[in-house]
């Protein structure tokens, strides 16, 4: 069984968000970068679990500059067998999907995993685009996935419920909470990661159709209005008359 896991690098969950002078680009000075949690905790770990029971290999793929290699090595430490880095700035969802599709096209992957979205640009776009480029079925927001032969049974989160579906491989799946439990890489994993193959691939020509014009910070809240715990009628009045939410 051949698994491909798409991993993105994002600022750490607690990183301060700021942008350079004209709001064109994220200011990464002093920022710690991590593997996007949905990719790491859910997609990558599930792929490794399935490989452990069914055999095969897990390939982790990232579109990004050489500085992303620390994150890529972490994927190898967690359990991926090999990694691929497509040497380009990930300028947008379509660009990233196109690059991964170009790599995956002729490799015969059975199951392609991604996280449900990245915690920085929150697009939830790459999975569907990649599936379309590869002409494969796509199941987003999957919280459970079991394989029996070449058939996958997947549960996915929908508004107000869970949908259970079946699909033959190959398949593209985006993972949400429930798919697996976070794994902390152990010493052996970290040592082994150093010698696992990390291949660098040149990007294909593709122009990202969406332009990021500028980033701004949301308006700061006016500050909290404290209400005496004995005065809940007053809180209700404020919510009704001032905030107009009751």
């Amino acid at each position: 069984m051949k698994f491909l896991v798409c991993i993105a690098q994002t600022p750490d969950t607690t990183a301060k968000v700021s942008f350079d002078g004209d709001g064109k680009a994220y200011n990464s000075t002093g920022v710690q970068f991590i593997m996007n949690p949905y990719d790491e905790w859910y997609a990558l770990v599930r792929a490794c679990e399935l490989r452990e029971t069914l055999g095969g290999a897990v390939t982790a793929i990232n579109v990004g500059p050489a500085t992303n290699e620390t994150t890529i090595r972490k994927a190898l430490a967690i359990g991926a067998d090999e990694a691929v880095r497509i040497d380009a700035e990930p300028s947008g969802s379509a660009f990233v999907a196109r690059q991964i599709a170009a790599y995956a096209e002729d490799k015969g992957f059975d199951l392609i995993f991604l996280g449900k979205e990245t915690i920085d640009y929150n697009g939830a776009e790459v999975g569907a685009m990649l599936a379309e480029y590869l002409d494969l079925p796509f199941v987003p927001l999957a919280s459970k996935l079991e394989l029996a032969g070449s058939s996958a049974t997947v549960e996915r989160d929908i508004e107000g419920g869970v949908e259970v579906l079946e699909c033959n491989l190959p398949l593209v799946v985006s993972a949400s909470k429930g798919m697996a439990e976070q794994r902390i890489p152990n010493m052996r994993g970290i040592m082994m990661a150093r010698t696992k193959p990390l291949q660098v691939v040149q990007p294909v020509d593709f122009e990202e159709p969406v332009e990021a014009v500028r980033f701004t910070l949301p308006p700061v809240k006016a500050g909290v209005k404290l209400v005496d715990p004995e005065q809940m009628d007053e809180l209700v009045r404020l919510l009704h008359e001032e905030a107009k939410v009751l």
């Binding site: 968000v17 942008f19 929150n122 159709p209 969406v210 332009e211």
Partner: peptide, 17 residues
């Protein structure tokens, strides 16, 4: 416009396709 960085910033995008 959309909210990015899990609500910590607002992004403005231009689409001309």
């Amino acid at each position: 416009k959309k909210s990015v960085f899990s609500g910590k910033a607002i992004a403005e995008y231009a689409i001309s396709t």
